[in-house]
């Protein structure tokens, strides 16, 4: 059980680190294009790479980390007035809903990523641009979030208190 929690925490951190790298890449990529433009040049494919790769990775991969640390925006006021066991009950409910939601997203986006890979999905811009690898960020992020939710749930039940 402890091993599972530690594994899922490790996954969160790795994904977060990749997202941070994507943020840096996004900053540099856009800046490079702006500088190139001042010299009547361009970094070809900035819009496509930034939107479909850097953005998707930076926005979605930290999800498991955010879920684990309860940085997903939620409303505490009402629940804090309730007795501990009721709080725990609602927390378990929230975890179950979260698990089902992210599970459904992981499952469907996994199927989509697979299909996209098989047909080598592209978008048309001023050239042909492959986007299928970016699709895999979704099942990865949502799947890891399921693990994080499960780990939180086990911890809450073990400690008999809402997290």
């Amino acid at each position: 059980m402890n091993g599972f929690v530690r594994f899922s925490m490790w996954v969160d951190r790795v994904l977060l680190a990749v997202a941070c790298i994507a943020l840096v890449a996004m900053t540099l990529h856009i800046t490079a294009d702006v500088i190139a433009r001042a010299f009547h040049q361009q970094v070809v494919g900035t819009l496509e790479t930034v939107s479909y790769y850097h953005m998707v990775v930076a926005v979605l991969l930290p999800l498991a980390f955010v879920e684990r640390n309860h940085e997903n925006i939620r409303v505490d006021v009402l629940v804090q007035l309730l007795p501990g066991p009721v709080q725990l009950g609602f927390y378990v409910l929230a975890c179950v809903i979260g698990f089902a939601f992210f599970g459904a997203l992981a499952w469907q986006s996994g199927l989509d990523a697979y299909k996209s890979t098989v047909r080598a999905e592209t978008i048309m811009s001023n050239f042909l641009f492959y986007i299928w690898p970016a699709r895999w960020a979704l099942p990865l992020a949502f799947g890891a979030t399921c693990l994080a939710t499960l780990a939180n749930l086990m911890k809450a039940v073990g400690e008999r208190r809402a997290l």
């Binding site: 943020l23 996004m26 900053t27 856009i30 819009l47 930034v50 939107s51 479909y52 850097h54 953005m55 998707v56 930076a58 926005v59 979605l60 459904a104 997203l105 469907q108 986006s109 199927l111 989509d112 986007i131 970016a134 699709r135 979704l138």
Partner: peptide
């Protein structure tokens, strides 16, 4: 419902205009 899941998160997040959000936060 499954179709909506396919058609929503990826195409929503992959928008150039929205890159302003993480960049200004950073």
């Amino acid at each position: 419902a499954w179709g909506m899941i396919s058609a929503t998160p990826f195409d929503f997040v992959g928008q150039w205009e929205l890159t302003a959000a993480p960049m200004f936060l950073l």
